[in-house]
Simulated scan of single mutants.
Amino acid sequence: MPKLVDHKKRKIKIAEATWKVIVNEGLEEASVRKIAKVANISVGSLRHYFSTQSELFVFSMQLVSDRVENRAKNKSYEGTPLEAMQDFLSEFLPIDMDRRIEMEVWLVFSTKTLVDPALKELSQVVYDDMHQACSMVVERLTDLGLSSPNLDKNMEIERLYALIDGMALHGILHPDRFSAEKMQATLKYHLESLCEGV
Rank of each mutant, 00 (worst) to 15 (best):
S90L: 14
E121Y: 05
D128L: 15
V126A: 03
D116T: 09
S60A: 15
F109P: 10
D98C: 06
I22H: 02
D128T: 13
A39L: 07
T80V: 09
L114V: 09
E78H: 15
F57D: 03
I35T: 06
P117G: 01
S42Y: 02
N24C: 01
L56G: 02
M103C: 14
Q124M: 12
R99V: 02
H48V: 04
V21F: 00
S31F: 05
V125N: 11
L56H: 01
Y49G: 06
N74T: 11
L114Y: 14
V43S: 05
E102M: 13
V64C: 13
E69G: 04
L56I: 07
M61E: 10
I22F: 03
P94S: 12
R47Q: 05
V108W: 06
R33C: 05
Y49L: 02
N70G: 09
A36P: 10
G44N: 07
E83K: 11
L46W: 00
S65T: 11
F59Q: 00
D128R: 15
G44D: 08
V125Y: 10
D96H: 13
S45E: 07
G26W: 04
L63N: 07
D116R: 03
Y127P: 09
E121N: 08
L122N: 08
L27D: 01
A39T: 04
A39Y: 01
E104P: 05
S42C: 01
A118H: 07
A30Y: 04
K37G: 07
S123R: 10
V38C: 01
R67F: 03
I95C: 07
N40D: 11
E25S: 14
P81N: 04
L46G: 00
E83D: 08
F57Q: 03
V58Y: 02
A36F: 07
K34V: 00
D87N: 15
V108I: 11
T80G: 10
L93I: 12
S51L: 01
L46K: 01
L82D: 06
V21H: 02
T111C: 12
E121C: 01
F88K: 14
V115L: 05
I41Y: 00
V126W: 03
E55V: 06
L107Q: 12
L119Y: 03
S51R: 14
V58L: 06
Y49S: 02
K37E: 13
V38N: 00
T80N: 08
V68T: 06
E83T: 12
D96A: 11
